[in-house]
Design a protein around this nucleic acid. Structure first.
Lengths: 137, 137
DNA sequence: TTGCTAACCTATCGTTTCAATTGGTTTCGT
DNA sequence: ACGAAACCAATTGAAACGATAGGTTAGCAA
């Protein structure tokens, strides 16, 4: 299940995409529009900045801004960054120790197939597709 | 992420499918073959029985058995029963209170689409497809 | 210089979920 | 009566979740 972290991150990205051109958008505004605690968003947005998805500027007149155009983001990278891992199953997590049953496991092929399905779904979904902006595809 | 409960449930079902005909299979045997604590499996298997996916018989010579043929089960029903909910997102959980933002939410359509994708994937996957048994299909 | 704004940083907290474990009771065949 | 097996209830330790609290630092303007 996708947690609030990933979902909120996505909503922040969309909000910023829909308010492009207004130079830097203070988090306060985003939080109010989205009805999410600003303090909680700070934690999430920090990760988006350090992950290179957003740019932040301090001080008066500061705030956050996308550092690419909306069509150059995909949902997958946003979720992977904030959720840590999108693995469907513990066995497929990147920092899981190798399962000794892997070679004989009846279920592993299905999980792998499922993982691929999810990956493809989110990585083919562009940010521009899910927000109401006029700067087209 | 699919928890151990769902994954173990699936492995029990597969194990039983692969040992069909041996009348009732004691959980002890399944646990040993799968390398999972028998006590923990008891909890999981109880749900499979009360959900009508397995039949259990007590006493000496007892154990568990599938109550349909492997090709008549799909993975989706097994996971739904044991995982409780397969909803990808809290907003789509069956016992979540309606989100006030639902009508204006930019992300909801995507989550709904994702939910459908997952549902279809698991519900079209038959138990017989993922186990090594000779009783065909 | 002072004040304000806004990002940045660190710690903590209450609750829930996860993954079991413990210690039984009941039912059945022999 | 005995043993094997399902059935049942409660607890536990650890981790994750979803925040909240209380700061510090950087930049702009009067």
């Amino acid at each position: 299940m996708i947690s609030t972290k990933g979902r909120y991150a996505l909503r922040v990205m969309i909000d910023l995409a829909e308010h492009e051109g207004e130079t830097y958008v203070p988090l306060k505004d985003v939080a109010e529009r989205q009805g999410i605690s600003k303090k909680y968003l700070e934690i999430i947005v920090k990760e988006l900045v350090s992950g290179g998805l957003l740019a932040g500027v301090r001080g008066k007149g500061g705030g956050y801004r996308l550092c690419r155009r909306p069509e150059e983001y995909n949902v997958g990278e946003i979720l992977e960054l904030t959720e840590g891992s999108m693995a469907a199953v513990a066995c497929l997590d990147h920092n899981a120790d190798a399962c000794p049953r892997a070679s004989i496991c009846r279920t592993l092929p299905m999980w792998t197939e499922y993982d691929q399905l999810i990956h493809d779904f989110f990585h083919s979904k562009k940010l521009s597709e899910i927000c109401h902006t006029n700067s087209a595809v």
